[in-house]
Nucleic acid binder design. Structure first.
Lengths: 142, 142
DNA sequence: CAGAAAGTATACCCATGGCTATTTTTAGGT
DNA sequence: ACCTAAAAATAGCCATGGGTATACTTTCTG
């Protein structure tokens, strides 16, 4: 079959491995961001509200919170609301900022606002720091 | 603190629901695309090569193939290679085209090529038809 | 053409992230 | 204060997508 390799197989595999890793943290990012939103909007983050906003059943939200606690991103006492740790709050802020930039970039290249909001939700988690920086530079330099 | 609701909660939930659905098909898309690549490059798609390229263990690839068969995207006979159905080939081509556009768009807004390739792998699955169309229009109109 | 090597399938295990049903706790109303 | 309603936790289920270890084909080689 001869030689060929335009891209070494292991490099290609890295792409997918990375995409899988990103996926693993994406949900945590979403939950953390939403908890932050709820605290700002409602003064506290209740499990029921979190579940409703995330579009999942209440026990699913509870389990997610357990994961956040395990990762040191949130704290919660039974039957009380959920709170973000320092790390959690910082993550939430980074996620929020990135989301904003992604939406703006999509709009800047001609994506309708509604669609931009929808697609950004999935896209943002895969936007690396380098790509984010490029997006910001592009937006500034228009 | 007052009123606020900029977006109704259920709409917000839809965003996440959609992102989750996208995620469910993303892996199938990746496998289908890779099988297509292997057939082009090597004349056939072997499980071992597929596993190596996807960065997973061989049984994981075998299981993925089972899912592809179940979805009507691929066919395979034990100990023989994997082949794409009409539907599978069509999906592979769509995925490939979308990937190309996403990479080009990232480069067009200033993302370094290497990074663009990496990030596109995760991003592409979340790019809706509408966003893809906007990307194409943007690239053409430069 | 037999035996070794390579490739593939199978059997099992694990964590994640959904779900429903049920229990427990908290909060509210009379 | 009690009793009820609402909220949250717990228990237990499922599919997915990873993984190892092992068994089974197929292929290659001496």
């Amino acid at each position: 079959m001869t030689d060929i390799p335009p891209t070494p197989p292991e490099d290609q595999a890295d792409r997918f491995t990375r995409a899988r890793e990103v996926q693993a943290v994406a949900l945590l990012e979403d939950y953390v961001e939403m908890i932050g939103d709820l605290i700002v909007e409602m003064g506290e983050a209740r499990v029921a509200d979190l579940a409703a906003r995330m579009g999942v059943a209440q026990p699913t939200a509870t389990k997610a919170i357990a994961r956040l606690k395990r990762e040191g991103l949130a704290t919660a006492r039974p039957y009380r609301g959920v709170f973000l740790t320092e790390a959690g709050a910082a993550l939430a802020e980074r996620v929020r900022a990135r989301h904003r930039v992604v939406v703006e970039l999509l709009i800047a290249v001609g994506v309708p606002e509604k669609v931009a909001e929808l697609d950004a939700e999935g896209i943002e988690h895969h936007v690396s720091d380098e790509t984010l920086a490029a997006f910001e530079a592009f937006l500034k330099s228009r």
